[in-house]
């Protein structure tokens, strides 16, 4: 009978997924309607989902005694959990709830995808039996999670920016005076344009730009530390800290993209729409590094010794 029941870790996973889906829907509707009760409903759901996910990882470790992050199931579920965690921290600090529907929605998608990779418990192959696994994987996955949150804000920035541009072109609205101002959206919102009204309620382009910077500034040091600890682990396990393995080099590529972002962001004229595009490309490169390399390109990181 006991065998027929779902193990605790899988139950927690379903709870987290449910909380994210409902939370995402509530925040999406909040994004459009600005009804405060929806936000008050979604915040505890996001927190509960996140807690259930960490509970799931602990339960899995307790049940199997195997470090749970060494396959796509475990790492993806940590990815979703940390993305929600970072989002919650930023949301409390910088009032980021307007982006919550998208962050929770994406997390729910990744979590659902993670569940399809659940293969049951498997002991680690020799090269993964290292304490570095316990340091390196969480760091890298957390950096990916931070980049996911900055990606969502970048997309919002770009939508707002291009909406303003298209309104400015249609005339006879106010001309764009400063790069980061959105007078046309404000005017269209006052005139009852629904799209403009939604966009008018999210922070200004300048504030969105600063938010993107702040979140990338969490992700990039994490990625740097992730690459460094990965190199230390490789040094111990494969004999060289850098082997030009596809996974390493894909992470290096993402690191370079975000270094470009940081440098562009030091320039007044390039801060804003251009740096938002670079942040968006950065997250696509992270997704390639995470899934593309795992699924299409084999290398040392596919763990064949």
């Amino acid at each position: 009978m006991a065998n027929a029941q779902m193990p605790l870790d899988e139950v927690l996973m379903i709870i987290a997924l449910g909380a994210y889906v409902v939370g995402a829907l509530a925040l999406l509707v909040y994004f459009f309607s600005r009804s405060e009760w929806l936000r008050h409903l979604a915040i505890p759901l996001a927190i509960a989902g996140c807690a259930a996910q960490f509970g799931q990882l602990i339960a899995r470790y307790e049940i199997t005694h195997i470090w749970p992050l060494l396959n796509l199931y475990g790492s993806l579920s940590l990815f979703a959990a940390v993305a929600v965690l970072i989002f919650i921290i930023f949301a409390f600090r910088y009032d980021l709830w307007f982006a919550g529907g998208f962050v929770l929605g994406l997390s729910a998608l990744f979590l659902a995808y993670a569940i399809t990779w659940n293969e049951g418990s498997m002991p680690a192959v020799p090269s993964l039996q290292s304490y570095w696994a316990k340091i390196h994987v969480p760091l890298v996955v957390s950096s990916y999670a931070a980049f996911m949150v900055s990606f969502v804000i970048s997309v919002m920035f770009l939508v707002k920016y291009y909406f303003e541009r298209s309104l400015a072109k249609q005339g006879p609205h106010a001309p764009v005076t400063m790069r980061m101002d959105t007078p046309n959206i404000a005017a269209a919102a006052a005139a009852g344009n629904a799209g403009a009204q939604w966009l008018n309620t999210i922070p200004s382009l300048a504030q969105l730009d600063v938010l993107i910077y702040r979140i990338v500034a969490v992700g990039l040091p994490l990625l740097t530390l992730g690459i460094i600890t990965g190199a230390m682990w490789a040094h111990e396990s494969w004999g060289h800290y850098w082997q030009w393995d596809p996974k390493e080099t894909a992470a290096l590529f993402s690191w370079i993209v975000y270094a470009i972002y940081m440098h562009l962001h030091t320039r007044n004229a390039w801060r804003g729409v251009r740096s938002a595009w670079v942040s968006l490309i950065g997250f696509l490169s992270i997704m390639f590094c995470y899934f593309g390399v795992n699924l299409w390109i084999s290398g040392l990181h596919s763990y064949k010794v």
Binding site: T249, F253, I256, V257
Partner: peptide
């Protein structure tokens, strides 16, 4: 640098 790295990936 990024593009050359990507070629190698």
């Amino acid at each position: 640098w990024g593009l050359l790295t990507l070629v190698g990936v």
